[in-house]
Simulated scan of single mutants.
Amino acid sequence: MTTRSYSKSPSGAPLYLKAMLPALPIVGRLPGIKHADGAVPDLVLERHGVTTDPDHLDSYNDVCGFALGDTLPATYPHLAAFGLQMALMTDASFPFAPMGLIHLRNSITQHRPIRVDETFDVSVRAAGLRPHPKGRLVDLLTTVTVDGETAWEEVTTYFRRGKGGAPEETLAPMAGVEAPDGVVHWRMAGNLGRRYGAVSGDRNPIHLYPITAKAFGFSSNIAHGMWTKAHCLAALQNRLPNAFTVHVELHKPILLPATTIFGSEETVDGYLFGVKGSRKPQTHLTGRIVTLK
């Protein structure tokens, strides 16, 4: 296993440029740019001594809807990992070019809340390259530790469309789960992707402007899946336990601007929640919170 350490989060703009190079004729086939088509890389990317900027946290809370507190929202450590995730996906040893990937699922386990004043370490690696009926899947595994203790973990699952036909080897966390009906309407402005992108560092063109999204086959720019997940947790913030796992499956993208409907219902071990369209009967996200004992 090779470990690559960073003193700060890798810069987003150079990474997005690197992410686009494999799609270019001739250039995309050059050594160091063309991605390997095999196993996941035996590589771990890590940062040590990560601290939280209170102003940045305030901006994140404002965009996502979280109330202020002395602990980090459960989705916030994802931002500390995002640069490492992009660096891993743009490495030529990663089995897929990142611009063709679809963020399909995300699972976060908060073993205990992380205080705003705590320093933590982050590591990212790839695993779980496997078939899907319409292509292949791969996971990015992120671990956050505080003083050597695992406080937070994330599994981000990406889908690559292509030759498939084989069923998934294990049942997806949200398989067979329907989004509950709701009455809470969310009005999402056309600049939401730019606002969240400025805070998160995720400036994928599909989220920014209609014209940049159309270049990738969307009729308009789309909301970030991680913003949608964060906004769901913000809506349930006062009911969340200290230790829990939250799974989400991302379905139809949310074309901005949009009005969506959030619904939730309590279960024996947590909550089910989801986001649906207000005009069309389509589901954008299904989620489940499971309390850890």
Rank of each mutant, 00 (worst) to 15 (best):
A39W: 14
A39F: 15
A39L: 14
A39C: 04
A39Y: 14
V40R: 09
V40N: 06
V40Y: 15
P41W: 15
P41T: 11
P41F: 15
P41Q: 11
P41L: 14
P41I: 13
D42M: 08
L43F: 04
L43H: 00
L43D: 00
L43V: 00
L43P: 00
V44E: 03
V44M: 01
V44A: 00
L45Q: 08
L45E: 07
L45Y: 15
L45A: 05
L45S: 04
L45G: 05
E46G: 02
R47G: 01
H48E: 01
H48L: 03
H48D: 00
G49H: 12
G49E: 02
V50I: 12
V50P: 02
V50F: 15
V50A: 04
V50L: 05
T51P: 00
T51L: 03
T51W: 14
T51Y: 14
T51D: 09
T51Q: 12
T51A: 07
T51E: 13
T51K: 12
T52D: 10
T52Q: 08
D53S: 08
D53Y: 06
D53Q: 02
D53H: 06
D53G: 00
D53P: 02
P54S: 09
P54M: 13
P54K: 11
P54T: 11
D55G: 04
D55W: 09
D55T: 12
D55R: 14
H56A: 06
H56I: 05
L57M: 12
L57H: 12
L57D: 13
L57E: 13
D58F: 04
D58K: 11
D58W: 03
D58I: 03
D58G: 04
S59D: 15
S59A: 15
S59T: 06
S59G: 13
S59P: 03
Y60T: 01
N61D: 09
N61V: 02
N61W: 02
N61Q: 13
N61K: 05
N61S: 07
D62I: 01
D62P: 00
D62G: 05
D62F: 09
D62L: 13
D62S: 13
V63K: 01
V63Q: 05
V63N: 00
C64W: 07
G65D: 06
F66P: 01
F66C: 07
F66A: 05
A67G: 06
L68H: 06
L68D: 04
L68W: 02
L68N: 03
L68T: 05
